[in-house]
């Protein structure tokens, strides 16, 4: 790692100030992706601003509107344990990485990084979540802007994520056998006004909504409703773990399984 200063502010406002002081400042969530990146000397921040000591960014609660609200620095383990009001979301959190990673990794860190194979982007996009930052609120549909790219500005941090709770939902993940990230995974959520289907791990553009499946499932929420649909392998990630065509195929299989398992 290159040398840097590590700051641990206790308030959002202090974190924002530390991040805006210098262009070479970078926020640090749980560090489960950033620290390995730093070890490879692939990033060279002068200052890391840790967000994990900020009490107002911690925890899970239920809003008056019935949304599950999760502080940006809440760990996956906490979400798994405390987001029982949204079982599919809690289950997704319980399947990220491994127990030790879940004890450090945070929802804000995951969403800010927007790894194309990460789990949380699928939940956020599949739930039509609202991403709350220190500066504004961003709809999930506007937030994800391609692999490792989001609507966040420099120095902007995710303070909270609000998930509307669907009638039924399920996250079906097919592990990449080495990293245990999603080789492909699908989040399906059935709301009163329609079904949302978000696919992660597959596209070169990062997480995306499969609109044809959403339409079909909104009309008939059953795996059979998908039978005539298919995704193209074009634009899908192709690597040593699987071709684009394989990922496209998996996305359909997993969507069907998610529908069948949705509770």
């Amino acid at each position: 790692m290159y040398a840097f200063d590590l700051e641990r502010p206790g308030r959002i406002a202090d974190a924002v100030k530390l991040l805006s002081d210098s262009e070479e400042s970078q926020p640090l969530g749980g560090g489960q992706t950033l620290i390995p990146t730093l070890k490879q000397r692939l990033a060279m921040p002068e200052r890391l601003v840790s967000l994990t000591a900020i009490p107002e960014m911690q925890g899970v609660c239920l809003s008056d509107a019935g949304e599950v609200c999760i502080g940006g620095a809440t760990t996956h383990a906490t979400v798994a344990a405390e987001a029982g009001a949204y079982p599919a979301l809690a289950a997704l959190a319980a399947g990220i990485g491994d127990p030790a990673v879940r004890n450090r990794g945070t929802i804000g860190g995951s969403l800010a990084n927007n790894d194309p194979s990460a789990c949380y982007p699928a939940a956020a996009l599949g739930s039509g979540a609202r991403i709350i930052t220190n500066a504004r609120e961003i709809a999930a549909d506007d937030y994800f802007q391609g692999m490792f790219t989001t609507a966040l500005d420099e120095g902007e941090i995710i303070t909270e994520v609000r998930f509307p709770v669907p009638e039924k939902a399920h996250y079906e993940k097919f592990d990449q056998p080495a990293s245990r990230f999603a080789l492909t995974a699908v989040f399906v959520a059935k709301y009163a006004d329609g079904v949302r289907v978000a696919v992660t791990g597959a596209s070169e553009e990062g997480v995306f909504r499969w609109s044809e499946a959403e339409a079909a499932l909104s009309a008939d929420f059953s795996a059979e409703a998908l039978s005539g649909l298919s995704l193209s392998g074009d634009g899908m990630i192709s690597d040593l773990h699987g071709s684009g065509a394989y990922r496209a195929h998996l996305a359909k299989v997993l969507t069907g399984r998610a529908v069948a398992a949705a509770r």
């Binding site: 056998p177 080495a178 990293s179 990230f181 690597d239 040593l240 773990h241």
Partner: peptide, 22 residues
């Protein structure tokens, strides 16, 4: 599981536990 892959330029693609499945 275990797959050691070099690309045609000789770069080791499966160079960490992120891609080499233990």
């Amino acid at each position: 599981l275990e797959q050691t892959t070099y690309d045609s330029e000789g770069q080791l693609i499966s160079a960490s536990y992120m891609d080499y499945a233990m």
